[in-house]
């Protein structure tokens, strides 16, 4: 199967590969995995106090489309608010990368990774609010 140029670009030059400190109260970590292909994806976001995503890192073990989807996501989320990021849907990724139907599940994985990272940062913030209240 031929990959689109955009997938190849992200696959060959992945953006923002790496790790943020998962214990940092401003970092949300999302870990997801797809049993069908055994792909594992970690997406981390660093959120400022006023709710803007300052940094994002990913690490993905999987096919080219899964790597490209998560690489693209790190670019998409930077500078956005939590609410804006929440609105990102897998079809945005599919369109941007021109993913074929058989690879749509890779974009679903990336969307789920965003949701998991958001849930993590929200849980962390809720815990801190409670602790200081």
């Amino acid at each position: 199967m031929a990959y689109s140029d955009k997938v190849l670009d992200h696959y060959e030059n992945p953006r923002n590969v790496g790790t943020l400190d998962k214990d940092d109260p401003n970092v949300g970590t999302g870990m997801v995995g797809a049993p069908a292909c055994g792909d594992v994806m970690r997406l981390q976001i660093k959120v400022s106090d006023d709710g803007i995503i300052e940094d994002a890192k990913f690490k993905t073990y999987g096919c080219g489309s899964a790597i490209a989807s998560s690489s693209l996501v790190t670019e998409m989320v930077k500078g956005k608010t939590l609410a804006e990021v929440e609105a990102i849907k897998n079809m945005d990724i599919v369109e941007e990368l021109a993913l074929p139907p058989v690879k749509i599940h890779c974009s679903v994985l990336a969307e789920d990774a965003i949701a998991a990272a958001l849930a993590d940062i929200k849980a962390k913030r809720a815990a801190t609010t409670k602790a200081t209240a």
């Binding site: 997801v32 995995g33 797809a34 594992v40 970690r42 073990y61 679903v108 789920d112």
Partner: peptide, 21 residues
């Protein structure tokens, strides 16, 4: 198994998988 649509797994397990990879 809903292999493609259900991506929620035990985070500890996934962490371990990442380390093995």
């Amino acid at each position: 198994l809903n292999e493609e649509t259900d991506t929620q797994m035990d985070p500890m397990f996934l962490m371990e998988q990442m380390e093995l990879r």
